[in-house]
């Protein structure tokens, strides 16, 4: 009998005591320290607030969350697993499985919001809307094309970073808007946990993209960069339509678009590229920024004006054993 086994590489266990890329361990530690489940957020405290929204506002909110569910599902079930084949270290594979799982947690957490606030009929209608919305389907299919088996590993990472760092934000805007008006504040707390995770995901996938890109020829680097900006333009155009369809009724489209520009810049920065949109179109409503990072602006920056004094914020956890003073 022929021995096939000796031609196959030996199966290997992952050795976390021999890490080739420190970023793998750093990101693993960050993601696991930040682990959460929707059950820890008291969503039912938002039931009264939900009742104060108009029918139109409620429908918009449900649709936005149905759209976000779709993107999280794509990333958890297709995007992150698709990048496993291209991982250059076993630890990168482990981080990607964590990312895939957390995207499934995110997708499920929208169902927790739905079951707390909505009727079965409303929930079913929202999922149907997401399946039938041409703009949402267009962005999903653009991304899924880059995730197809055998697709270019660099393009997979570009699509993935854009999903994590750009495509979610037309949706994230709305819970931040409600939060800035003291509405659905528990839901906003949950969304902030998702937003925090997506930042680490976009950062890590963008980092792995940069490491892979630097091994390519100058010509290929230029081709990939063109591809990235081209894809950003295409996705942005779809996002403009999607945003207008959702937010025109409430007169919020222009404000949401600034948030899109701002996040598009951050997505490109995660890939190591320069930002695209100038400051003049990224001046996000300060209420949205402070909903995103509450209390972060209570200490005035010295260079940003508003006085020469500086205020020391509340005490924060520091690892005192590392500091000598």
């Amino acid at each position: 009998m022929k021995d096939f086994a000796r031609h196959t590489p030996a199966a290997r266990g992952i050795n976390w005591n021999r890490v080739q890329d420190d970023k793998d361990l750093e990101v693993w530690n960050r993601l696991t320290a930040n682990f959460w489940l929707p059950e820890k957020v008291p969503l039912s405290n938002d039931v009264q607030s939900w009742a104060t929204l108009t029918d139109q506002e409620r429908e918009l909110t449900i649709r936005v969350f149905a759209g976000l569910t779709l993107l999280d599902t794509v990333q958890g079930s297709v995007g992150a697993p698709a990048m496993l084949a291209d991982a250059v270290t076993p630890h990168e594979e482990a981080v990607l499985t964590n990312i895939a799982f957390m995207e499934s947690v995110h997708a499920k957490s929208y169902s927790s919001i739905f079951s707390t606030l909505c009727s079965t009929t409303e929930i079913d209608a929202a999922f149907r809307w997401a399946e039938e919305n041409p703009h949402l389907q267009a962005k999903a299919s653009k991304i899924l094309a880059d995730y197809a088996p055998g697709a270019d590993p660099l393009k997979k990472k570009i699509a993935s970073t854009f999903l994590e760092s750009f495509l979610f934000y037309s949706g994230f805007y709305l819970p931040m808007h409600w939060s800035s008006r003291a509405k659905l504040t528990n839901t906003a707390d949950l969304i902030r946990l998702i937003i925090r995770d997506e930042a680490v995901h976009g950062y890590y996938i963008g980092y792995k993209f940069q490491r892979a890109l630097e091994r390519e020829s100058a010509a290929r680097q230029a081709e990939i960069k063109d591809y990235a900006f081209g894809l950003m333009f295409e996705l942005y155009e779809i996002e403009e339509h999607y945003t207008a369809e959702l937010y025109d009724g409430l007169g919020m489209t222009e404000d949401v678009k600034k948030f899109l520009h701002y996040n598009a810049n951050k997505a490109l920065m995660n890939l190591g590229f320069e930002s695209l949109f100038p400051d003049s179109v990224t001046d996000v409503n300060p209420a949205i920024l402070s909903a995103l990072s509450p209390n972060a602006d209570e200490n005035h920056d010295f260079f940003s004006g508003s006085g020469s004094s500086y205020v020391i914020g509340k005490s924060v956890a520091t690892e005192d054993e590392d500091w000598d003073f």
């Binding site: 930042a199 920024l289 995103l292 990072s293 509450p294 972060a296 020391i312 924060v316 520091t318």
Partner: peptide
């Protein structure tokens, strides 16, 4: 990154303090 909420640029606050 503002995505980290209250922890945005926290290193600056810690070192300032």
């Amino acid at each position: 990154n503002r995505n980290f909420g209250e922890m945005f640029a926290r290193a600056g606050d810690v070192i300032a303090q």
